[in-house]
């Protein structure tokens, strides 16, 4: 069996209603799993850029990119896993913070270069940005204090250096 790993795929898609449904429907009916998904506007007004994290072996992920590319509203697809990447996620964590432990929590937040974005009498909301490992580590450290609520965005990723995933450039041809 080929090794199963997380692959980071980015896609440029038309910014039109229903695009996300088409993509989600394709993943569902072909039995692929999305571990994480992030969508947002990009530098071209009529396009959105999506970042998927898909778990699978190389052949499966190649099929995912080809099936994505087949959708008429998908303009460009790239599996950028093997490239040198900047990957980021953002998390908001509401943690229990009674006065007795508050300073300890603030220290941890400082070490991680995270931010406290809301303060309530017995809890804090912490905002942290970074790669998956960093966010996981922070969460592990906060867990003993009691995490009341947590929300993580999907991964967004960009290749380092000059290579770009553009409308007409780099990416899956076909």
């Amino acid at each position: 069996m080929a090794p199963v790993a997380d692959h980071t795929i980015t896609a440029l898609v038309e910014d039109k209603p229903g695009v996300l449904t088409r993509i989600a429907s394709m993943f569902r009916r072909r039995g692929y799993n999305i571990s994480s998904l992030a969508v947002g506007h990009c530098e071209v007004p009529s396009l959105s850029r999506m970042t998927f994290v898909v778990r699978g072996d190389d052949a499966t992920v190649e099929q995912v990119t080809k099936q994505l590319y087949k959708l008429v509203e998908v303009v460009r697809v790239s599996d950028i896993s093997s490239e040198n990447l900047v990957c980021r996620e953002l998390a908001l964590v509401r943690v229990k913070a009674p006065a007795a432990v508050r300073s300890e929590i603030i220290q941890i937040v400082d070490i991680f270069r995270a931010n406290i974005v809301d303060v309530a009498p017995d809890s804090l909301i912490i905002e942290v940005t970074g790669d998956v490992d960093k966010i996981d580590s922070l969460c592990n450290l906060l867990k003993p204090f009691g995490i009341k609520e947590m929300m993580r965005t999907g991964r967004v990723a960009m290749t380092r250096g000059a290579a770009m995933v553009e409308e007409n450039g780099h990416g899956q041809a076909g």
């Binding site: 052949a59 099929q63 080809k66």
Partner: peptide
């Protein structure tokens, strides 16, 4: 003509889209 068909079911040595 459909690149997604190549390698979908059978391992291919020479793909021609």
């Amino acid at each position: 003509v459909d690149p997604a068909e190549i390698g979908k079911n059978v391992k291919v040595h020479v793909p021609i889209v």
